[in-house]
Write a protein that binds this DNA or RNA. Structure first.
Lengths: 212, 212
DNA sequence: CGAAAATTACGTGTTACCACGTATTTCATA
DNA sequence: TATGAAATACGTGGTAACACGTAATTTTCG
């Protein structure tokens, strides 16, 4: 790893954030090659410049930060990708392993943390915010429960989250209404849900993001 | 209204956004008196400087933008308050009337819109983003239904949204279990909810923000 | 192939939710 | 004070959700 200033491109669909980040990096003397306001622009910037680091928002029009990371991996671009987002996205932790993600920071973090992150990543060391790590712990627990579900059970859980009744689910899956009930029962047992009347519906609603 | 450049203070707890907004206003030649990173700082800045305009994030530590607006009104500070936020807060439209709010913009909006907003507000004309207005339309409809609910019905609706069963609600309110059921029935009728089994729970969950 | 897991299905019983109706009491206010 | 709205409460009947158990069939995989 050379000791020259790393080249960087950034992308964010929030003009204010983009400006803030851009100004900050320039002031700090980083080698900012360019910035994009959506996923397409970001992707083009990356394949044209092959920067050392790309700091990308997760949610952007046309292409998300994750999609960009995926494509970059598939075409063997060595750009280190740092995701930046407002939300503590729980699903992220797994994908971070699969893709060549090198960092994940929250927008509300201090500017110094960004500088810190860039330096760390430049040395080839992944950087994840502390708060993210906490989340990962929690999510891992919950996901362990989820993983014990069979495919059918997951499918039914999804449908429950979509406000379907047992009968609707049954006819949709061409199985008996009783079978659906049995699955429900098994799901409740596996997920250690309190045995209240609508507890499964409530659970499904609260965790419906994880069922996608 | 004088034609001099309006004095402005800004506050946001996201360093990046604050920097972006700050840099932008300075570049555009606005008279930026100061900036704060939380509600307290913002409030102090306002009462000390009594700026023409205060651009505040809604969600901030110690004091929200709305609380600041409230306090400012109570002590007759004439600063025109513009709220800025990432989320399309549905509850906002009502409060905008009560307080001396002069604007509401979304962070993802173009920088030009902010400039536009400041100019409009300087002339004493409230500025609300188009997207907000759309939302207000929708929310007004829904709220009309909500307003038809009696106090007791609202209370029960809140408890339903908190996953309480009829019996729990009954014992908590010291009323009969049957009464709760009657209320439920009335609520369903008033809100035009489809007569499915857990439809009321689902409705309450989906609208639980509005029940606060 | 054989064992384990998954899927399918049913029985029985309890509780919760919902509709529709009736009826009493309380309370604000025209 | 009198009218009406709201809150309270109960009856009846139907559907849905859930617990717990049994069991046949299919899939999966060592």
């Amino acid at each position: 790893m050379t000791k020259t200033t790393p080249s960087i491109i950034i992308a964010d669909d929030h003009p204010l954030l983009l400006k803030g980040l851009s100004d900050f990096l320039i002031e700090k003397g980083f080698n900012l090659l360019g910035s994009g306001k959506d996923g397409r622009e970001a992707y083009n910037l990356i394949i044209q410049n092959e920067p050392d680091i790309a700091i990308l928002d997760i949610q952007m029009p046309y292409m998300s930060g994750l999609e960009i990371a995926q494509k970059c991996k598939s075409i063997d671009i060595e750009t280190k990708i740092v995701l930046i987002t407002l939300h503590k996205e729980k699903e992220l932790y797994q994908k971070a392993q699969e893709l060549n993600l090198f960092g994940y920071i929250l927008k509300e973090f201090a500017l110094e943390e960004i500088e810190n992150c860039i330096k760390t990543v430049t040395d080839g060391v992944p950087f994840f915010s502390e708060k993210i790590k906490e989340l990962i712990g929690v999510v891992l627990m919950e996901d362990n429960d989820l993983k014990t579900l069979t495919p059918s059970e997951k499918k039914i859980l999804k449908l429950i989250a979509q406000d379907k009744t047992n009968k609707e689910i049954a006819s949709q899956l061409f199985i008996s209404y009783r079978t659906v009930e049995k699955h429900r029962s098994n799901i409740i047992t596996k997920l250690n849900i309190e045995p209240k009347t609508n507890s499964l519906l409530i659970w499904a609603k609260e965790h419906h993001e994880k069922l996608l």
